[in-house]
Design a protein around this nucleic acid. Sequence first.
RNA 1: GGCGGCGUAGCUCAGUGGUAGAGCACACGACUCAUAAUCGUGUUGUCGCUGGUUCGAUCCCAGCCGCCGCCA
Length: 586
Amino acid sequence: MSSATEPDPILVCVAWPYASGPRHIGHVAGFGVPADVFARYQRLRGARVLMVSGTDEHGTPITYEADRVGISPREFADRNNAIIVEDLRQLGLSYDCFTRTTTRNHYRVVQEVFLRLYEKGYIFTRTQLGAVSPSTGRTLPDRYIEGTCPICGYPEARGDQCDNCGNQLDPVDLIEPRSRIDGERPEFRETEHFFFDLPAFADRLREWIEGQAHWRPNVRSYSLNLLPDLKPRAITRDLDWGVPVPLPGWRERPDKRIYVWFDAVIGYLSASIEWARTRGTPEAWREWWQAPGARGYYFMGKDNITFHTVLWPAILLGVGDLNLPFDVVASEFLTMEGARFSVSRGRVIEVRDFLSRYDPDALRYYLTTAGPETTDTDFTWAEFVRRNNDELVGTWGNLVHRTLVQAHQNFGAVPEPGALTERDRRLRAEVEGGFSAVGGFLDRARFKAAIGEAMRLASLVNQYLAEERPWHRIKEDRARAATTLFVAIRCVDDLKTMLTPFLPFSCQRLHEMLGYTDVIAPQPRVREVEDDGGAHLVLGNDYEARPRWAPSCIPAGRPLPRPAALYRKLDPRVVDEELDRMRARA
RNA sequence: GGCGGCGUAGCUCAGUGGUAGAGCACACGACUCAUAAUCGUGUUGUCGCUGGUUCGAUCCCAGCCGCCGCCA
C-alpha cells in the first residue's frame, strides 16, 4: 500500500561484477557507489529498500582464466568472489543481499524462468556451426579465434571482425584459423542451441520505453535504436560451466549450459528470493517485484544498457507478473590518467589497493563529484588529492571541526541560544531547504548536483561564521556567540544527514560527535549462508528504514565530546608516488 | 561498415533559442575559531570548423575535422 507518509518500496538492482578478477575503481564508480548513495538516501527518507546484486561467475572467460591458473572454475570464482565481497564491504555499499550466481537458489530460479518462457513458446532450438577446440572439446567464442582475413588478407583477423579492414567476419571463413588460446586449429561442428524470441517483444518494448520520459535521454534513445534490429538471441552455449538446461535429455548433458548473460540478469530476481528465504519470510520478495507501486532502479555502466532495457525487460514480460524496471541509471566510463583502464598495461587501481592507502569516504566523494555520471570522466591522482584536500577536508571537514571545537572548548555542550536574528533565520532556512533540494536531485539520480548543493550549503555556513565571528564575539558578548554556534551546529547536523548517503563512515562518526548514540549509517556485514548443503558468502545486513531526512532538532545543553578530525589531508607527494606505482606496473 | 557520444575559460566539468557559468589555478584583500583551513573581490573564452533554419544559435538541422565508445 502506498500513502503520502509511507513511501513505496524501492528495489535497487546493482550490476553484477564479473568474477574474472579483482575489480578496479572504474567498476565501482559506474554502479556501486551511485547505487549505494541512492539506496541510503531512500532509507533515510523512510522507504523500504531492497538492494541486491552478486558476483557473476559463469561464462567462458572464467573457465579460461581458471585453466591458466590451474584451478577449477569454481575455485577461481570462490577466490574472486571473496575479494570482491571484501572490497564492497570496505566501501560501505549497503547491499541487502550481495550473493553470487553459483548458488543452488540461483540455479533453481534461472531454470524456473527458462521453463516458464519455454512453456510459453518464447524459447526454441536452432542448429548452428560452432568452433570447437579438438584437444579440450571446448567451444571457442568467435573472438578467441584468429586467422587470415578472407577479404583483405590481414593475417591476424579475429573471428568476429578484421581489425585491418573492419569487415565483419564469420570464423568459418577465416583462412588458416587458429585458437588464440593455444594456437591449435579449431574444428567446426554443428551444434543445437536454445534461442530466446526477442522479436516477439519488440512492440511491447517500444511502447514501454517510449513512455519512460524520466530516463536519462541517452539510455532511452540508445534502447529505442536497438529495437528495429532485434533478433532471436542464443541463451545456451557449448560449455560445462554454468546452469544446466532444465529439460529432459538436456539436463544431464555436461556440455550444454545456459549462456551467462541470461543467467546473470535473472540474478536480480534470484537474489531477492534468496534474501527473503534467508530471513525466514520466503514470500517477502514479492513486495518489491509484484506490488504495483514498487519501483525498481537499475544501476550499471553504459556497456550494460542493452541487458537492462531490452533483454531483461523482455524476459520479465515473457515470464509475466513481474515489475519492469522503473529507471535504468546507466553511467558512462571512468578513465585513468587520460586513458582506458588496462590491467595488462598496469593502468589500473584495484579497489582493495586503493582502500589500503585511502579512506572509503575520500573515494566515494571523488567518484560522486568527479565520476562518470553523464559523460566519460578521467580519474587523476592530482585531482583526487585536490578534491580531498580543498573540498572534503577544506570546506566540509573544516566547517565541522571549527564549529565543534569552538562549541566544545567554550561551552562543553550544544550552546543555549538566545533569540535568533534575521541573519540566523535566513541561514537556517537556506540550509533546511537542502532537504528538498538535495533530496529532489537524489530522487532523480542526479548525484553530482545533489552533493554539489550540499557542499554549497556548507560554504554558506562557513560564510556565516566568517561574518559572525563567534571566536571574536565571545569576548564581549558570550550569549551572541552561543547563539551563533547553536545555529552553526544545527546546520552541521542537517548537512550530516544530507551527506550521509555519500559519506557514510565519516557522517556516522560525526553523528556520534554530536552526541547521538544510534546508527545513522549502518554498514554491511559478511556472513556465510547455507544453500542446500553448500555455503557461500553474503554481504548484507538488516537496515532500518526510519525517516530521518528532516531538519535537525539537536537540543541545547547536550554535552559534546572533544571533536576529532573527520578526514585526513593528503600530502601532495602521493600524486607522484601513485604515478610511480602505476609506471612500475606497466 | 552501421549506430551513438563527445569537442564550452590554463585544467576538470555545468548549461540555455536571445550574444555564457561553477570549482580549481592566478591576483589582491579580510580573518585568525579551524587539518595554513575559511571568507570576500577580480581577470580569463571567435561555446571544434563550414553552411542552413530563425528576428536571433553555443544550444535546432546538414556536412566536415578531431577524439572515443558500442555493434556486427
